[in-house]
Design a protein around this nucleic acid. Structure first.
Lengths: 110, 110
DNA sequence: GCTTAATATACCGTTGCGCTTATATAATCC
DNA sequence: GGATTATATAAGCGCAACGGTATATTAAGC
């Protein structure tokens, strides 16, 4: 599943929001969604793993999940094409981000 | 349908890419996807309309579609939370974006 | 007014996602 | 080792999204 689809799911975005603060165990994440069962959350975690949005660290019987923003950077790069439409004057900032993630573009020749 | 789901569909992203260059008629967009039928593309356009990602201008019998980036800005705001994870040294730039979207110093806030 | 062109909607079939229950795997505790 | 805890996978189901064919709607040309 690609990053766009992974992020399209509200529960998965909520998981990412939780992980933005600090790493959490699978159990903590399950507890954060009382409306869902443990397997349901576990499946979401799998999808986030497979789309490289989160990282897992084994800690005994626990799996500690943390954010892995590379994939989100991909989203950001995609948005870059459109950013000029609502923030033309911030183009050079976008250029900066690009230079960091992609190795440099020719766009900010201002 | 929310913006995240709207953008999750590859065809719809391709439509946005086409519209990033210039506005196009529905017919042009249909022609751009030979693998799809006219109703299929029309349905995608409806979804893009309803999620406020595109604008329509009636021109006789034609409907001219154009990009409407407000909704993409929403995506960008969401990403802002995570931007620090891959561009920590660009925090102040993210701060800039924040000030633009949430600070209310601008005159064209919608 | 009738025909053609441009676009949208209705309807239906298929498929994939997300959920639940049940079960497997692996680590910890006694 | 057996029980318990933590997490993942399997199987099955319901629903919503996407695609196609057929049809409606609206504009243009004659």
């Amino acid at each position: 599943m690609d990053v766009f689809e992974a992020v399209a799911e509200p529960t998965r975005r909520a998981v990412l929001d939780l992980l933005a603060g600090r790493e959490r165990s699978a159990g903590e994440l399950v507890a954060a969604f009382p409306a869902l069962t443990q397997p349901a959350v576990s499946r979401h975690l799998r999808i986030l793993r497979e789309s490289r949005l989160v990282d897992v660290r084994v800690d005994g019987a626990r799996r500690m999940y943390s954010l892995r923003p590379d994939a989100l950077a991909e989203l950001d790069r995609w948005l870059d094409t459109y950013r000029r439409f609502w923030a033309g004057r911030l183009d050079r900032l976008a250029g900066h981000l690009d230079a960091k993630t992609g190795g440099g573009r020719e766009e900010d020749t201002t």
